[in-house]
């Protein structure tokens, strides 16, 4: 048998036709660049202390220093990481189960499952407040059923120290997104790989541990990083459903930014830039994971 030639690595192939996709993406790219990039360009000098309207024109890193050395920064960062991390982990675990349940389900069921994707976070946060507040619908239902005697007996789920309302909102909202990401990997040979495993004597746990997880982890990781980045930087849900102290980083940034004292604005923007750096890091990591998966996916 003659030795077969190895395939040419992808990176050696000439890259052609990049202009057309860029042109098609231009409207979306322009919006992102103007709003995100423009905001950064305008915000960066202010975070460095350049705010002539407030009589500040000396550029320094003192506002970053003040933020980073403020004891509240770490409690806010901890709370933000807790909300982003826990909601992402819960959503990831439930998405894994949902994807396995949905992989061979009819299309209409998948369609229903996708509906939460279209509902804004703000709407869900308000719905959660209506449902879970001490005077909310669930509390009233429990009272009518005789399970509690009044709103005071209902556990605190909104504006609570464990951020239950915030977590529920994010979990409910992010599960469909993460499930769809996993589902595409599962449908793309994932189920066939499981069949291969079965005929190679892998039991149910072994199939989950040695086939399903390695196949899904890149997608799950990429989706998880996107969700983590979003929840890390999102403002409206913790603003509506979070406790007053400690505040999440985005809420703290907003409070500083909208303070009547203009001198607090550079610190608000500095917090915003810290958040932007974190979010950008997550997006880059997610892209790397997705690229790695695409490269490995060539064998499918």
């Amino acid at each position: 048998m003659t030795e077969e030639r190895r395939p040419i690595p992808l990176k050696r192939l000439p890259r052609t036709g990049a202009v057309r996709p860029l042109a098609l993406l231009a409207p979306a790219l322009i919006v992102v660049l103007v709003l995100f990039g423009g905001g950064l360009i305008l915000g960066l000098p202010q975070s460095l202390g350049y705010l002539p309207a407030a009589g500040m024109s000396k550029i320094s890193l003192k506002h970053f220093q003040r933020v980073l050395f403020d004891p509240d920064f770490f409690s806010s960062l901890g709370l933000t990481l807790y909300v982003a991390g826990v909601s992402t982990l819960i959503a990831a675990a439930l998405s894994l189960l949902a994807a396995m349940a949905l992989v061979e389900s009819p299309r209409w069921l998948l369609f229903i499952f996708q509906i939460p994707l279209t509902v804004p976070h703000l709407v869900i946060a308000i719905a959660m407040a209506f449902l879970l507040a001490p005077s909310g619908m669930v509390a009233r239902l429990f009272q009518n059923l005789g399970w509690i005697s009044g709103p005071g007996d209902f556990p605190l789920l909104i504006n609570d120290p464990f951020c239950i309302g915030i977590l529920l909102t994010y979990v409910w909202k992010e599960i469909p997104f993460m499930t769809l990401m996993i589902l595409s990997a599962l449908k793309n040979s994932g189920m066939e790989m499981l069949d291969v495993g079965r005929t190679l004597n892998a039991g149910p746990w072994q199939r989950f541990r040695y086939i399903l997880l390695p196949i899904l982890l890149p997608s799950l990781g990429a989706a998880g990083l996107i969700v983590f980045a979003y929840t890390f930087g999102a403002f409206e849900v913790p603003y509506l459903l979070g406790q007053t102290y400690p505040m999440s980083l985005p809420v703290w940034a907003y409070r500083n930014y909208s303070d009547v004292d203009l001198a607090a604005r550079p610190e608000g923007i500095a917090i915003g830039i810290v958040i932007a750096v974190g979010v950008t890091g997550c997006i880059i990591a997610s892209q790397r994971l997705a690229r790695g998966q695409k490269r490995r996916g060539t064998v499918f």
Binding site: S189, M193, T199, F300
Partner: peptide, 27 residues
């Protein structure tokens, strides 16, 4: 299926992309 002494080779190779050649064979 995992208890049957029958192994199937599919139309597509369906190799585990996260394992190398030896690890695939050893699966």
């Amino acid at each position: 299926p995992e208890k049957r002494p029958a192994v199937m080779v599919f139309q597509k190779p369906l190799l585990f992309p996260f394992l190398n050649v030896e690890q695939n064979i050893a699966f």
